[in-house]
Simulated assay, not measured.
Amino acid sequence: MHINIDVRSYQNIAGQSIFEIDRRLKHVKENDLAHGEFGKWLENIGLDRSFATRTMKIVNELNSNYATGHN
């Protein structure tokens, strides 16, 4: 039983981290960079573009599903 609680706790932390990463990536992309510079910026900070794209897609889908389910 204790292990299940630990796993859920870490799952919650991971989910919060994904949302925070998404928030920060979107902020930089929308406010700090010219069009077309996002990929170069990701390379400069050592972040894999596919990871960034998947993170933003996951959060977008979760937000979309949440909004649809609550209307």
Rank of each mutant, 00 (worst) to 15 (best):
L47K: 02
D32H: 14
I58C: 07
L25G: 00
Y66A: 06
F19A: 12
I5S: 14
K29C: 04
I13K: 11
G15N: 08
I45M: 06
Y66E: 04
I21D: 02
D32K: 15
S9M: 15
H70L: 02
V7W: 07
Q16L: 13
G69E: 04
S64P: 03
S64E: 05
I3F: 15
M56V: 06
V7C: 04
N4C: 09
H70C: 04
H70K: 13
V7S: 05
A67D: 06
L25I: 05
F51G: 01
L47H: 00
R49F: 10
D48V: 03
N4M: 15
M56L: 06
A67M: 07
M56P: 01
H35K: 13
K26V: 12
E37P: 12
L25P: 06
N12M: 12
D6Q: 13
V7E: 11
H70M: 06
D22A: 11
I13S: 03
W41R: 04
V28K: 09
R8P: 01
I18K: 08
S17R: 13
I21Q: 06
K29Q: 11
W41K: 01
L47V: 08
H35Y: 10
I13L: 14
G46V: 05
S50W: 03
N63F: 01
I45G: 03
N65D: 05
K26F: 03
N12L: 15
Y10A: 13
M1L: 12
K26E: 09
G69H: 06
W41Y: 15
Y66V: 03
A52W: 00
L25E: 01
W41P: 00
N12G: 10
L62R: 04
T68F: 08
T55M: 07
M1F: 13
S9N: 14
L47A: 06
F19T: 10
K26G: 07
I13M: 09
V7A: 06
K29R: 15
L62H: 02
N65W: 00
I21M: 09
G36E: 00
A52E: 03
S50T: 12
D48T: 04
D22K: 12
N60A: 15
I13A: 01
A52S: 00
G69V: 01
N44V: 07
S17W: 10
R54D: 09
A14K: 08
M1K: 08
E37H: 12
S9Y: 09
F19W: 03
K57T: 13
G36T: 04
K26C: 10
Y10F: 15
D48C: 08
F19G: 00
I21N: 02
E20L: 08
E30P: 02
N71W: 12
A14Q: 05
L25Y: 07
N12F: 15
L47F: 05
K29L: 11
E43N: 12
T55H: 04
R8T: 04
R54G: 04
L47P: 01
M1W: 11
G15V: 05
N65F: 05
G36D: 01
N71E: 13
E20P: 09
G46L: 09
K29S: 05
Y10W: 15
N71P: 14
F51S: 10
M1R: 08
G39V: 00
